[in-house]
Write a protein that binds this DNA or RNA. Structure first.
Lengths: 347, 347
DNA sequence: ATTAGCACTCGCCGAGCCCGAGTGCTACCA
DNA sequence: TGGTAGCACTCGGGCTCGGCGAGTGCTAAT
């Protein structure tokens, strides 16, 4: 049976009040603050029903109610009024992305900062996944007799480079011939395919270039592996320390340890499977330390292709409406900024 | 007047006990634990004297004593027995640096992690300062008709790159001529000199290459400016949350905000002026939020030239002996690792 | 100069208490 | 039948108060 209209309003009011105050909310306060047009007794009955249905909880008998995870879930799925980010905030976000064209690393870091600033929670960003992009070209730039810079360019405009050692006795023309073969073979393949076997095949075919191939092999696989957390950017620790639920240093520590320990990485990767925004509420998180938290993740794109994931981690009592709009706007801006530099690239 | 031998021993014992337990230490505990060979009454007298001299404080009348900032200062300057890092720890640190040759970014991040792991405090690292290195060569790698990769190589083996736009009508030969002129002019100059005026001069001389010069100019100046905190790596937030003095979320927040706000950057830069290890204790820190903290900083080198700074931030009640040895070993290892890749480079 | 002894101080901790916000229930009303 | 008013009851938070004990400073003795 669907919830009566009034019960929905009551539930929504409770959640929004609790999100704002972090205090259990009682029937009297509710009618006073939210002009529900009925008496507190009526609301009390509704609250009792809602509790029976599992949408509310009582921390103890004589306190008000707080939303349960299920309550939040219903809220984000059905009750929430998407607050369309106020103009000031939106244009401030836009402005921050309109600055000069930056290195991707800087862009990621700035994005994290913006995300955290506008939500007051912890911002997480996973750098662009090279594996999802397509090999465009591999260049060699001789730096000295013994060394060269290997430059990998992908179709999303990402550039990775590494210094390699030129095997003794390998001349410049051999070097460029090597590059030509590699380029011809890998042209148009996704880097995932490259890592998946192509490179091994190539390695066998180019047995004569064994030494240099090994280095290129390392370079490719290294750039592609999920990354032991090193491309996860985390910003806003000091911000969540301001949240009432994180006044206890121990709780924060557990959460941060989990995040540093790769739990966040895992969660983001998982969320990356679906495009669009994914919300994970409280106990829905697998890791115990995160069960007092909610995570809102989204994927960002370059020219239509999903390449990375970002997220906001905060207490379960999270301002979902706000976070959703911020995450939405920020992913759009980031995707835009990245795509623009690619467009610039293809022009 | 110099402190009597016994008073020194008493002070040292108090500091070491307080560092270990975070509890005010009383006369009885002291004689019991540290076999001072005198009675508690004697120690009480000594403690009263030490308090009079400003080395100790009483949180309240009927509690034990705790060291004052001045006490810690005397301790690190004169009383401390440098504990020569136990073998296990030392070899564990060494081992962590012996892994594969890595990108500098990764190396920095790993170093921060190691530093924090072995001290249990917050680790701060400022990336290598390009300004302190010498221009070696600038290369151009055409990527498409309209774009090229600009690669700057310095004598410390650092490589920076950026994509630039090739002005319409500029052919490959013009491009390489441009590079040649730049190389000839900047050869052997420190990047600080380059930024200081050389580049402006060059810009005037190469008026014909105005468009591309502007981009190169941006590239140089951007890589050289102190960096708005973006090359400051901070690791170990969850670790300091375990320290008793940081159980109060608010205090931690203030400290972290200060760190994120650039205070740490400033402090590290300041410390970078002296080579070697610098210790700043409690109130000696300028920023109010940091006055409950101590900062141990050191500079690291590449082939004899100081290029960057790192530090450990913890509560004033810090295990100075341990931190000093760890910081010492880690800077040595980091300098070694960096220099090795340069040596590799020059070979 | 050192020590034993002793009176005194004062923060911590638990017990007991009150207050008030909030509930559930019952009786009543439209 | 759904909404309302009233009322007794619950229970956590915050208060005070007193005892405990670690630690001090002082004095007198060695």
């Amino acid at each position: 049976m669907a919830l009566s209209d009034r019960k929905q309003r009551v539930l929504r009011a409770i959640i929004e009040d609790y999100v704002a105050t972090a205090q259990p909310v009682g029937s009297a306060t509710l009618v006073r603050k939210y002009r529900l047009g009925v008496s507190s007794a009526t609301v009390r009955n509704d609250m009792a029903d809602l509790e029976g249905l599992g949408y509310l909880e009582q921390p103890h008998t004589s306190a008000g109610r707080i939303p349960s995870d299920l309550g939040y879930r219903l809220y984000v799925d059905a009750l929430m009024r998407q607050s369309p980010l106020d103009e000031v905030r939106l244009s401030s976000i836009r402005a921050q992305f309109e600055a000069r064209i930056r290195e991707i690393e800087d862009l990621i870091r700035d994005t994290a900062r913006i995300l955290s600033e506008h939500t007051n929670y912890l911002a997480l960003i996973l750098g662009p996944k090279l594996a999802r992009t397509v090999f465009r070209t591999l260049r060699m730039l001789p730096l000295s007799e013994h060394q060269a810079l290997l430059v990998l360019v992908t179709d999303a405009g990402f550039i990775e480079s590494a210094v390699i050692e030129i095997p003794a006795g390998m001349g410049p023309d051999q070097l460029s011939r090597f590059a030509t073969v590699v380029n011809q073979t890998l042209q148009g393949k996704t880097l995932a395919q490259v890592a998946d076997g192509l490179i091994t095949a190539l390695r066998q075919n180019l047995a004569e270039y064994r030494d240099i191939m090994d280095q290129a092999f390392d370079f490719f696989t290294q750039g592609l592996e999920p990354g032991d957390g090193k491309d996860l950017t985390v910003v806003g620790t000091s911000r969540i320390l301001g949240q009432p639920e994180f006044q206890d240093a121990n709780k924060v520590r557990q959460v941060l340890q989990a995040v540093e320990g790769g739990v966040a990485l895992e969660a983001l990767n998982e969320a990356a499977e679906d495009d669009g925004i994914v919300i994970t509420i409280g106990r829905e998180n697998r890791h115990p330390a995160m069960q007092g938290c909610s995570l809102v993740t989204a994927t960002y794109r370059v020219g239509g292709r999903t390449v990375g994931t970002l997220g906001v981690l905060g207490p379960t009592r999270m301002d979902y409406a706000r976070v959703l709009s911020v995450v939405h706007s920020v992913t759009e801006c980031l995707s835009g900024a990245l795509s623009r530099s690619v467009q610039f690239w293809y022009r």
